[in-house]
């Protein structure tokens, strides 16, 4: 399925990263990342396992703190932001975890209500119900409302995880390996959902993956992370129109004849 043309505002950077560095002990994961994410854009970050893709979005969401560099998210500089400002900013960023991270002691309904009730003071029962049904409809899983996470399939869990982030109407979505561990058909369904979210919720998204089908289906731009830096950034075809021995095998092994 071809990706619909997105409504991207190239004059409006929702994320601006400069010279970002992060190490764990002696292991330098990110070595000076520069990145811009524009309003309404889906940016796919590709790279091999362990190259720091997930670290990048954990830095953007404030779960990790950088060693050097600046991260500006929706006008807020994360390296100087106060804890209170960070709490307010987090509501504007949705984070879809690789393993969904659903609260396994709560039903689907409670999972969805949990962030809503705690972030929208004075919300009525009716408003909560409406919001829950709206996001469940968006991910086409209304029938699972009273089920426990353990009763859901992998694909359903991913969808509910995305629904839980959508309930707060985020401006930015961060997807960590959205298609990891899913069968090819469910992968395509998740990719379509990511595109629907972009269109319906007008979100700007960073999608972390090493699945090139996903990159091709959802990415307006693709950034290839190699050796702690973005080596190639552009459209999918631009990024892979190269003989670079570090990039080409990635394509060849994904679309093996």
């Amino acid at each position: 399925m071809e990706k619909q043309k997105a409504n991207i505002d190239f004059n409006n950077e929702v994320i601006r990263i400069r010279g970002l560095q992060k190490s764990f002990g002696d292991y330098h994961v990110l070595r000076g990342i520069d990145l811009d994410l524009y309003q309404g854009e889906n940016l796919v970050v590709l790279g091999r396992s362990g190259t720091g893709k997930s670290v990048l979005i954990k830095l953007i969401s404030g779960m990790l703190y950088p060693d050097a560099g600046t991260i500006n998210v929706l006008g807020n500089e994360l390296t100087t932001i106060t804890e209170k400002e960070m709490e307010a900013l987090r509501i504007r960023i949705g984070f879809s975890f690789q393993n969904s991270a659903l609260y396994d002691s709560m039903t689907v309904r409670k999972n969805l209500e949990f962030p809503l009730v705690r972030n929208r003071k004075g919300i009525t029962r009716k408003e909560i119900d409406n919001a829950v049904h709206k996001v469940l409809d968006a991910v086409s899983l209304s029938q699972t409302i009273n089920q426990m996470p353990s009763e859901l399939s992998g694909g359903q869990r991913k969808r509910i995880g995305i629904a839980r982030t959508l309930i707060l109407n985020p401006e930015i979505m961060l997807y960590d390996e959205p298609t990891a561990g899913l069968d090819p058909i469910t992968c395509i369904e998740i990719n379509e959902l990511i595109n629907e979210v972009q269109q319906s919720y007008n979100t700007s998204s960073i999608i972390i993956t090493h699945d090139l089908t996903c990159a091709k289906m959802v990415g307006d731009r693709v950034a290839m992370l190699l050796d702690g830096q973005f080596q190639r950034v552009g459209t999918f075809d631009e990024v892979f129109a190269t003989d670079d021995a570090r990039v080409k095998p990635f394509y060849d092994y994904n679309f093996i004849e």
């Binding site: 969401s61 987090r90 984070f95 396994d104 707060l168």
Partner: peptide, 17 residues
């Protein structure tokens, strides 16, 4: 178990405490 399955991180990033 909640920590290693990222449920606590999920609460953190959704602005809950």
């Amino acid at each position: 178990s909640m920590r290693v399955t990222e449920q606590i991180d999920a609460m953190e990033v959704s602005g809950t405490k």
